[in-house]
Design a protein around this nucleic acid. Structure first.
Lengths: 171, 171
DNA sequence: ACAGAATAGGGCAAAGTGACTAATGGGACG
DNA sequence: CGTCCCATTAGTCACTTTGCCCTATTCTGT
């Protein structure tokens, strides 16, 4: 259990703008002392406000320019076994359990169409997987972003107000 | 146009393990000189091997613990107008143009079910949007990761081999 | 008004950075 | 075979940043 105040949000904002800023630079930009920035950053990290660095690595740079979402339909009681198998496939970069008709939404990156076909085959080969529906991402029309949300949260809450968070389930 | 060699991949790997490593630390870990690390990091950044810092911010910390994928069906010739409108919605953190029956796959984060309902309504209100299908992410069964792929790419290519990449379309 | 937390401000030794040089070792190419 | 080019190494230097210490001064909620 932790809570972010307005200054924390401004810190995150500044980091989005200039990820490599030093503590001193952040302190200057926000008009705080370096100690304060340092303490807050430590707390932010402590409270899992940051996700893994993996997210910042461009799959394109790794020779995997194609992104696809694969909807997986499966026998639900084999779910954990299937997830364990899918974890072995390096091209699967993320997978969500879903509500609704699709059980699993899998995010894969691949080198080309053949590669995608191969990966899809590997998923289908898992015991308990009924069928898959593959959708190719044609373009990232809205590139991943969090700053608009950051701004809204900052604006909505009053200066001294807090955003109460329970982050422990993400740890 | 750029290419990553094995050392670049190892660098990225090390960064995933310890995102806050200094250049000296990276140099020690990889058995390189600091200058080399510094030069390579500069090249990596230059060639867009890193995505925006936004990706590392945990929406849960912002009070948005719910993630949902919304499939949007729309009149294709209004696509660009619709995307422009969706860009105004801060809870939309990403959107992909898709192949197949769904035109747009939108990733949203929200505070609770009511919030999701409201956002879905906002999307539906856009001129040219025919209908939406909302799927709630029940859990991130495979948390976003790139290291397995990193390892595979490193292993596959020989020591001196290169991964040829054209990153300019991501810039 | 009070207790506890957050902050500013200062200081200091250690570490890291950015920018530069010169030397080394391959590879590619004529 | 020699030569050019490039990445790398190793070293230096001035400068900045860090990590950690401390204390006095606001805030904050009760």
């Amino acid at each position: 259990m932790h809570s972010l105040d307005r200054v924390d949000l401004q810190l995150l904002r500044a980091l989005c703008v200039e990820p490599r800023s030093t503590f001193v630079a952040l302190a200057q930009r926000l008009g705080l002392s370096r100690n304060t920035v340092q303490a807050r950053m430590a707390r932010l990290e402590e409270s899992n406000a940051f996700l893994a660095f993996d997210r910042r690595i461009n799959p394109i740079a790794l020779g995997h320019p194609l992104t696809a979402f694969i909807q997986v339909h499966l026998q639900q009681k084999r779910l954990s076994q299937i997830v364990a198998e899918l974890t072995q496939i390096p091209e699967i970069v993320q997978a969500h359990g879903m509500s609704g008709s699709t059980d699993l939404l899998v995010l894969v990156v691949c080198t080309d169409a053949d590669d995608l076909f191969r990966i899809d085959g590997t998923i289908l080969a898992c015991e308990g997987v009924d069928r898959t529906e593959t959708s190719l991402a044609m373009g990232e029309l809205i590139p991943y972003r969090i700053t608009p949300l950051l701004d809204r949260v900052t604006r909505e809450r009053g200066p001294a107000n807090r955003v109460d968070v329970d982050i422990d389930d993400e740890a």
